[in-house]
Design a protein around this nucleic acid. Structure first.
Length: 459
RNA sequence: CGGGGCGUAGCGCAGCCUGGCUAGCGCGUCUGGUUUGGGUCCAGAAGGUCGCCGGUUCGAAUCCGGCCGCCCCGACCA
């Protein structure tokens, strides 16, 4: 993409309303625009990131055996009256009426609807187990939206729902999602730590929040330092096998948010393993049994092995997709701007032509742009007639993993500079060598790019 | 929803307390020149219903009342 043709309204100064760093950077980098409290338009750069995150989530859900569907944003109140939540949910639910004065609502979640869908089609134990998910905009009329997209009223969420014949099956589904979540966040360059969460009236130990560590996190967290050394991507995961040992490994060490914190248990850890930090919740997995499938709610039944009707055991599993955009920035930024992990970056390479109009610079940069494009590498080519400082500042701000700089100093001899945004490391090398480094499929980055390229649509 | 703060040009702000010429400044934008490896410098220009409605007054960005919007702290949540 040529920057002269792109829509990238970067800001030098920080808008007054933004307090936390991710919100500031998203506004300054031209990713989003506030439309109303907690409601945002996603501008082209922000949308690209949102889509990358969404796609990683989708791939891991699919890999874990979940099936994608798409339910509407607007739901009839009838469903919620069935479960009893229409009256319980309170003002957080945005209630609307259609032209016939029928009560509708903008969905804050989808347990009722997915239960109704499942109830309609599933008849027998042979239809179980099933894991259904969708990625859809939700609305919760928060009293106080804040932190930009991290706590908006409208937000993009991936929510999955599992249906199993019995508790053992539900636990297996839970484990699938648990592992899928670990992989999902790890692929995004995040260290997400599962922490025991409140299960409410259901009880049991089957609810975990996935928390990423960030200095600016919303809540205090306490955990065993050993958890940060675990690497799910290094494990071989077979979703058809028993996942319990793997789940046990991740839940064996102490980890809790402040509301579930057990000071005594934490104090029992060796001092060097005690870690106190700040965290942001990016996912939540929850087993709730027959709360929604039961007779007092949606009354979902299938015929069991013995011919008797049974209510499926359910669970739900959420990932805050739009929230992740902010959360990732909280975890990956510096003074100058964002430092995107490659897997979610809006573009992989920022190609900077320092002197547009200079024959050597134009030719070399143009050639590199064409070759990067041919190699399938998402490249943002800064071909603006701007000063070097402006270009560098914008590049650092939007945080693409690699900056490929073509300037008059080196262009004559075919030399360019390659800068790694995350580490800040720069090296002078020939254009050819830089290209090979960026797109050679045998190189680490090249391999990553190839993997990223799969299934990604241009944004 | 309780407490606090703020709405003046695209963005960041001053002016308001103590009403008074054509409402300012910086950044950005446009034009010309200059400069050219980290947000150049000079000159010129465009751009504002001072959030909205009403009141007080000879006169309101400024004082008073109401409303709307946004932000922060708290309680609540992905």
């Amino acid at each position: 993409m040529r920057l002269t043709r792109y829509f990238l309204p970067t800001l030098k100064e920080t808008p007054a309303e933004a307090q936390i760093v991710s919100h500031r950077l998203m506004l300054r980098a031209g990713m989003v625009r506030l439309e109303a409290a907690g409601i945002y338009s996603w501008l082209p750069l922000g949308l690209r990131v949102l889509r990358r995150i969404e796609q990683i989530v989708r791939e891991e859900q699919d890999a874990a055996g979940a099936l994608e569907l798409l339910m509407p944003t607007i739901q009839p109140a009838e469903l919620w009256r069935e479960s009893g939540r229409y009256d319980d949910y309170g003002k957080e639910m945005l209630r609307i009426k259609d032209r016939h004065e029928r009560d509708m609502l903008y969905g804050p979640t989808n347990e009722e609807m997915v239960s109704a869908i499942f109830r309609n089609f599933a008849k027998s134990y042979r239809d179980l187990p099933k894991l259904l998910y969708h990625i859809q905009w939700k609305f919760r009329d928060e009293v106080r939206p804040r932190f930009g997209v991290m706590r908006g009223r409208e937000f993009l969420m991936k929510d999955s729902y599992s249906f199993d014949l019995d508790y053992a099956g539900a636990r297996a589904s839970y484990n699938r999602m648990f592992i899928a979540y670990l992989r999902t966040f790890a692929r995004m360059g995040l260290k997400a730590i599962p922490m025991v969460a409140d299960t409410g009236p259901i009880g049991g130990d089957l609810s975990h929040e996935f928390i990423i560590l960030a200095e600016t996190g919303e809540s205090a967290v306490y955990c065993d330092r050993g958890l940060t050394d675990f690497d799910i991507l290094g494990e071989s995961v077979d979703y058809e096998a028993n996942l319990q040992p793997l789940v046990d490994k991740w839940t064996s060490l102490y980890a809790a948010t402040d509301e579930k914190h057990d000071a005594a248990a934490f104090a029992a850890l060796p001092a060097e393993r005690r870690m106190e930090a700040r965290g942001i919740e990016v996912g939540h997995v929850f087993y709730f049994g027959t709360k929604y499938s039961g007779p007092e709610a949606m009354n979902v039944t299938v015929t069991g092995h013995d011919g008797k009707l049974v209510h499926p055991e359910m669970g739900s599993y959420g990932i805050g997709v739009s929230r992740l955009v902010g959360a990732i920035i909280e975890a990956h930024h510096d003074q100058a701007g964002i430092r995107w992990p490659a897997a979610v970056a809006p573009f992989q390479v920022g190609l900077v032509n320092l002197k547009v109009g200079d024959a050597a610079c134009d030719a070399l940069a143009g050639d590199l742009y064409a070759k990067l494009a041919a190699a399938g590498c998402d490249t943002l080519y800064d071909d603006r007639d701007e000063r070097a400082g402006v270009k560098f500042a914008d590049m650092d701000l939007i945080g693409l993993p690699w900056q490929l700089v073509v300037g008059p100093r080196g262009a004559k001899t075919g030399m360019v500079e390659l800068k790694n945004r995350a580490s800040g490391a720069r090296e002078e090398l020939t254009a050819e060598a830089a290209l090979n480094k960026l797109v050679d499929p045998t190189s680490q980055l090249g391999g990553l790019l190839q993997e990223l390229g799969k299934g990604l649509s241009p944004g």
